[in-house]
Amino acid sequence: MDIEKLYEMLRKAQEPKGYYFNKDKERTFELLEALQENKERYGYMVCPCRLASGEREGDKDIICPCVYREPDVEEYGSCYCNLYVSQEWNEENIPHEYVPERRPPDKIRF
């Protein structure tokens, strides 16, 4: 899919839920391209900032939007990748802190 189309499609679906794309479009598009690359590589859009096992069952918590997005946006205003953020984060009303990895390490499959 064309990245511009993917951007619009996801934006329309996610903004009403309170999740906005990072206003840094270059970074957002880079991440969307990485998601697309993972879709081709694994068959699903797994988080580009985490190591996927390649088995859907083991990776299901990190298929974008991951299950950690909600608590991360709640606590830091941004998901782990800085792809989805809150309005306050985009408006720079809250500090852009480094979002630590919330996924338990035992979920990483070798």
Partner: peptide, 9 residues
Amino acid sequence: SLSTCSHCK
């Protein structure tokens, strides 16, 4: 690093 990761880039 990861080839796809924005922080790594």
